[in-house]
Computed example of a mutant assay.
Amino acid sequence: MTISNHPLWLVGFRPFFALACLAGLSLPMLWALIFSGTLPAPTTTFSSIQWHAHEMFFGFGWAVLGGFLLTSTKNWVNQRGYHGRALIFIVSAWLLERVGMWFEGMLSPAVFRISNNLFLVSIVVMLAWTLIKYRQDDSYRDNYLFLIILPLFLVSKNLMVSSDYFQFGWVMAIGLFRMAFLVMFERTLTQFMKNVFQVSILRNPTLDGSIKLLALSLVFAEPMPTPLASGISLLLALLLIGRFFFWKPQLALRRLDLGIMYLGYLALVAQLLINASNPWLNGAWVGSVSVHVFTFGVMGLVIPAMLIRISKGHTGRKVIFDRLDLWVLRIMILGFITRIVAPQLFPAAYIYWIDLAAMCWLTAFSILAWRYIPYLVQMRVDGREH
């Protein structure tokens, strides 16, 4: 067996979910140690906060999103996905980006730009080419949204390492990830609820389209007049709340493996409401609540559940959350509480809450890495190739 034929390189989710587990257990803890002064900051000309934000969105976040989209797009258009040498190349580019981000201050601007954009440019081109080339076979009519948002991620990531446009960059990043999660919620929860409870949830094309159009506009919330951005955030939150009650939460919340997805949905709504209230409550929160409600509440709650589900299902195993899987989800809920809720109640212990939240990520993703990386590097148990 050659390296390119190894099971790890058969499907996009395999290497990228392994990287996501490693990034999830290490990046928050690294930041906690840097924030407390225990570790020196990376060697960069931009701030350590910019490094942290960039790495959580474009290191951890894009390891997950890249693995998800590389796997999903092949199913959407019924084509063999990128594998072998192509997959090795973009994984290598992701790793190069992590090194470049840590040592940016020691690199020439040109070398840094190449190291910092090679992965995302490559994977965006790959994904867009798949969606465009096989558009006649595409099973989702709204996949054109990915052709819009994927290139915008490149704009966002470069703004995030700029001294003048950092806030513009991370607001864009949240807006783009919000779009991706909204599309994912619509597609996966429709399927999950039908498979588990044999029920249909509300899918109205006008409502769904309006939600995604409003969410797309919020990608550019930063340069908008504050009242306009707040109004759009409030309207989007209200539409999502209204739809939520037609998605049968009374059933989903009976099971943690499904309920965690609904909690992530509610965290997305909460983040929008916080943004809408900023003109009146800005400064009332302890810490950067808005961004962390999204990163801990949406990404932190939903991603582990999706990693478990996809890692089991796409390696030929039954998608059943066992006791340890459920404990991973509980630990991530605890991480949300310690990072978002506890500092509002006991702000004097703020730095300790950050440490505890990082420990939750370290513990949960260490369990995921220990359990699921062995699945990702082995052949499917059902005899299928990929």
Results as ranks from 00 to 15, higher is better:
A128T: 11
I148G: 06
G175W: 06
A128E: 01
D142L: 11
D164Y: 05
L150M: 12
Y134N: 09
M179H: 07
F103I: 10
I114H: 00
F166Q: 03
T73E: 10
L70I: 03
V111E: 09
K157W: 03
A128W: 11
M179S: 10
L70P: 00
F181P: 00
Y144F: 14
L152A: 11
Y134C: 02
V91I: 14
R113M: 13
L87I: 08
M172F: 05
I123P: 00
L127H: 11
F112V: 00
N78W: 06
R113L: 15
L182A: 02
M106C: 09
G67P: 07
R178Y: 12
M160V: 02
L150Y: 14
A180W: 05
R141Y: 04
R98D: 04
V124K: 08
R85E: 00
V161S: 05
L159S: 02
L182M: 10
F89I: 12
G66K: 08
T73V: 15
Y165E: 14
F153S: 11
R85Y: 07
I174L: 09
M160H: 03
E186H: 11
D137K: 15
T130R: 08
V121G: 01
Q136E: 15
Y140Q: 13
L120Y: 04
R80C: 07
W129L: 05
V171S: 05
V183L: 12
M101E: 12
R178V: 01
V111R: 07
V77H: 04
M106N: 14
G67R: 08
S115I: 04
R98G: 03
Q79K: 13
W170K: 08
L147I: 12
S115L: 15
W94K: 06
W102P: 00
N143T: 04
F68T: 01
D142N: 12
S92N: 07
V171T: 08
L152D: 07
P151M: 11
Y134M: 02
F103R: 09
P151L: 05
V183G: 02
E97F: 13
I123D: 03
R113Q: 13
D138E: 11
D142I: 11
R113C: 09
N78R: 11
G105S: 05
K157R: 14
N116C: 01
L96E: 06
Y140E: 13
R80G: 06
I123K: 01
M172I: 11
A128C: 12
G67L: 06
L145E: 03
V183K: 09
L107Q: 13
F181H: 00
N75L: 07
M101W: 10
R85P: 00
L127C: 00
W129A: 07
T71H: 12
L70T: 04
K157D: 12
F166H: 08
I132N: 05
G81P: 04
F153R: 05
G81R: 05
G66F: 10
A93M: 13
G100P: 01
F146E: 00
Q167W: 10
T73I: 15
F146V: 00
G169R: 05
S156R: 03
G81N: 07
K74P: 01
G169W: 09
N78T: 11
L131S: 01
K74L: 04
G84H: 01
